[in-house]
Amino acid sequence: MSDALAVSNLSFYYGRAQVLDDLSFTVAAGEIVTIIGPNGAGKSTLLNVIARSHRLRRGAVAVAGTSTSRMSQSQVVRTGCSLVPEGRQVFSTLSVADNLLLGGYTRRRDNTTKKLLREVYDLFPRLEERSHQLAGTLSGGEQQMLAVGRAYMSQPKVMLLDEPSLGLSPQMTELVMKVLKRMRDENGLTIVLVEQNARAALALADRGYLLNAGKFVLEGTAAALRGDPAVKHIYLGGASSTEQVEGPLADSLAAELAE
């Protein structure tokens, strides 16, 4: 079986500044993988290159066995890879319903719009109540639901989410995470979840990567990462902060990330 998402040897530069350094990873179909890392690590850049909001100059990306390396952004969406961008980026002066319809823009000839809209409204009943409201007047949490729903409308095989919990209350974060889980469990959706909220992300994910300065510095199952002293120390904080951080990797990592 081919992987739902395969990224190989991907590098990215803004001008001359290298932001991503030879990244390779794969995500199996139906898997939830999280990418955590400090501000400026390159997480958003990575998702934007995969979704082709940024050009792919070095490396290769394949979605469900199909190479998307040469594709335009709209072709990538049609192939089944959709981005839920950082900061939601809804169409603020259009209605909730129009935002969702536009999410299905690449599937406009498939006659599946009604069915998909129904599914989104079942996942997020709040959006149905507000379907005629302008997206810009929704609360932050509702806008995040809309951004997820909009991506869902393109019937993705792989959904890339960039910090969906940003600015959300713990309850709202939990709600969004539950819906992500439901989409995976019921539809077999593959999910790549970039998060600052490592606790929520590792609770949901099967596996995770720790990205720092454009490189993966740690990877493993979610359980292993939850137990990793460095991750505990820096990302999970709280109760674990009193625990001792051990090991050379953990030490250097902690020092590097703490600065």
């Binding site: 952004q73 709209s74 969406v77 980026q89 169409f91 393109s154």
Partner: peptide, 9 residues
Amino acid sequence: YAAGVVGIS
């Protein structure tokens, strides 16, 4: 940006 993200060319 968002228009590009949903696949509008």
